[in-house]
Structure formats: C-alpha cells, structure tokens
Design a protein around this nucleic acid. Structure first.
Lengths: 227, 227
DNA sequence: CCATCAATCTACTAATGAGTAGATAAATGA
DNA sequence: TCATTTATCTACTCATTAGTAGATTGATGG
C-alpha cells in the first residue's frame, strides 16, 4: 500500500485544507466546495446510500468522473463533509477554551457559540450522525474523540463552578450530558425562517443550560416571578 | 396493483401485530421476532445499507429466503423495526396521559418513563433516527406525528404548570424542546453496564427537566447545598 | 412405508451503481 | 495555426445484493 497509487484521477494540486496560493488551486478549491455543497444537500435529503454520485454530478450540471477528479471515492466525499463540520466545531471549541471568565460566563459562551456552530452545519451534523457507521474507523475515532472532549470539558467546567459555589449540581456527569443534549439535539427542531434565528435559539438554550447548573434566575430565589 | 400479489413467499398466518391464537401463529410470531431482533442488532452496528439480508439470515443460522417468508422486502423489515419502537413509545405516552397529578408530578413521570422506554429501544431508536430517509413516506409521517405529539403535549403541560404558578418558564416552546432533547439524546450517552442503570439515568434526567422549568430544588433557594 | 404439504435451501437473475479507460473538447502557449 | 496539456465526457466493467424459482428436506397422517 504505502502512499496513494492513483490520485483523484490525476492531479497534483493541494490537499483539501491547504491554503491555495495559485490561481489553479483557487479554482480547484472552488470546485471542491461546490461538490461538497451539492453532496451535503443530497445526502441530507436522501441519505448517503440513497444518493448516487451520478445525482450529485447532475446537480452540478456535470458528470460523475468530474467528482473523481477531486475525491478518491464516494466515501472520501462523505468523510470530507463530516470532517469539515468537525473541524469547524473543533475550531470553535479551541477558540472558546482560550477565553477567560467565571464558570457561568464560560458556560454561557460555550453553549451559545457551539449551538450556533452546530446550527450553521446543521445538514452536515445530521449527515454525520446518520452515516457514522459508513465512515472509516480512523475518521470515526477522530470525531468520537471531539465529542468526548466536548463532554469532558463541560464536566471540568461544571466541577469548577461547583467548587466556586456558582453551580449547584447533583450529578456533574449527567448535567454535562444534559447540556450536550441541548446543543446536540438543536438541529432536530431548529428551522431557519422560524420564530427564532440561530442566535436567539442559542441564547435560549444557554439559559436552559444555566438552569441545569442551577445558576440562573437569582431573582426566583426570593420567590419573585419575573417576565 | 390493488392488493399484494406475491405474499411473503406463501403464508396465510396473521399480520405482524395481531394476537396469535393457533400454535402455528405462535411459532410464526416467534420466528418473526427473532428475525427482527437479529436485524436490529446488525442494522444498529453496521447500518441498514451496510447490512445484507444474507448476513441477517446467517446470524440466525438460516438463509435469505427464510426471511422472505415473513417480510415482503428488506424495507418492510426496517419499517417493522421502527414501528415496533414507535408503537412502544406511543403506548407509553397514552398510558401516561391518562394519569392524574400536578404538572410537576406529570412532568417527572413522563420524563422518567419515556426515557426508560427510549433506552429500552435504544438500538431501534438509533436505527430509526439514522434510516428515517429509507422509510416509505407513510411510515415517516406516522412517526413524525408521534414526535410532534410528544413535543406538543409537553408544551401543554408546561403551560399548565406556568398557569398554576408551579413553573417559571421564559420560552415554553424552547423549554419543551429542551426536555425532549434530554430524552432524545439519552441513547447517545447511555451505556448499559455503566455507572447508572436505566431507571437511575431516567431519574437524573427528570431532575434536569425540573430544573429547566425552574421547579426543583426548593432547598437551594435558601442557599443550602444538599448531597 | 408412502403421500402430501409446508418449511427451508441451493442456485440462480436482474438491477443498480461505484469506479475507470479511453475518447473528446477546451484551454494554453508557441 | 498547430502542439500539448488539462478538463470533462461517453461508455463501459465489475462487484454486490435484493429478490425468486425450483429442488429438497422433513414433518404429518393414512
């Protein structure tokens, strides 16, 4: 095996995520993006197995071999879709981790921004959840790891808040899963064009997360209803 | 096309869910159940598209035509799996709706029992979520309806609690989705044989649901940590 | 034992769709 | 205008697998 024998047809341009610096690379990148975008749309609506590469190509006004100029296989295309979404989530997480603030502030920020990130990649997120089993073990591991990281970081944050007295939590582990549920399930109910936009939805979920750690609504402690 | 032309091979026994009254029907039912059970296991691990009927048959020590004696098609088998899980959830919901009690009590019961129901059908629930697109439109509609019912009933319940002053909720709709998230996401993290059993997990989630409607932990209002 | 009927198996078909080889068109440059 | 290279298409192959026809086994009753 070693390195690849027959490249996506024949192409010596940069790999998927390398920054393009020549004109040709830019064009290639654009084409790749459009393929991915069409595939996301179709895989989302019809499922991975239920979509043929001929359909994807047709949606682009092209034919199948066009796709093979950019991807090794149908599976490679799926992996690209999933890993883009994951990369995005990963970036978001890294960015948020470097921030300062109280556990409450951090929790709010994480839930808000992660929800928006998930909703921005709604279709890809749903595709990933569905087609996880289709992915090669390596890709699966990477992604599973990210999810574990997320849960774990939330747990650490919750411990912190409990230690500082900001949070009151009976079962930190389940509370963390609960918060992850809010974010992870959001694509199931959120519809763009609905009552709430993404930021608003994220804000509401952040409030629910606060409730879960028993840190919100200090006024309620006095028995005074608000709203 | 009117009624079916070629029945599952040739068989005049009862349909899937009819109560069996003859010996033969009982045996048929048992065989059906074992096919479904093997299929759930394999579809869960490998996905629907990634599993051949030959594999399912092999898992039973049988061969493919055996399956066709009980199911019209691979798709029919998938529909049976999903609709069993849904029927179960439906029964649970109906049972719970007939109960009496305060909004708080009702909410607790619904979250507890629904979580257990979902966890009992964990594999099937995950299969359904994944393979929704593979199902015929009719089956999809039925199931979507059940999910909407669930959300809606939770919403009604929350309104009730707000009216009675038991709950303090800023956005009832999102609160309902949040509670549905807790239940719907449970299969993603719950592992049998882990720290918690199903009942315990359900209980913890019920507590989180209470927190979301701001009805739990009255002791915390005095600033006294418990546990 | 034999006849009958159902249950199950062996061995096919037919269709689908991923992936590719080689032809063709289009761009680039002299 | 032609030569060369790159991008895309046409038209295949090949593997897989849902679904089936017909043979075979095994049970049941005479």
């Amino acid at each position: 095996m070693g390195e690849a024998a027959t490249a996506p047809h024949k192409r010596r341009s940069k790999a998927s995520d390398a920054a393009p610096d020549t004109m040709g690379d830019l064009v290639s990148q654009l084409k790749r993006d459009r393929i991915v975008s069409a595939a996301v749309d179709l895989f989302y609506r019809q499922g991975y197995a239920g979509t043929t590469l001929d359909e994807v190509a047709k949606a682009l006004g092209m034919t199948k071999p066009f796709i093979y100029q950019f991807f090794w296989s149908k599976n490679d295309l799926l992996a690209e879709i999933c890993s883009r979404a994951i990369r995005d989530a990963n970036d978001t997480l890294n960015r948020l981790l470097s921030q300062q603030g109280s556990p409450t502030q951090k929790l709010l920020t994480i839930v808000r921004e992660f929800t928006v990130s998930v909703l921005n990649n709604q279709a890809a997120a749903i595709i990933y959840n569905r087609e996880e089993t289709e992915l090669a073990a390596k890709d699966r591991q990477t992604i599973l790891q990210l999810r574990r990281d997320f849960d774990r970081r939330i747990m650490v944050l919750l411990e912190e808040g409990v230690a500082s007295g900001e949070f009151v939590i009976e079962d930190v582990r389940v509370a963390a899963f609960g918060i992850a549920s809010l974010v992870g399930w959001a694509p199931q109910w959120f519809r763009s064009g609905g009552r709430l936009n993404k930021d608003e939805a994220a804000e509401r979920l952040a409030m629910l997360a606060l409730a879960i750690v028993d840190a919100g609504k200090p006024k309620a402690m006095l028995g005074v209803a608000h709203g």
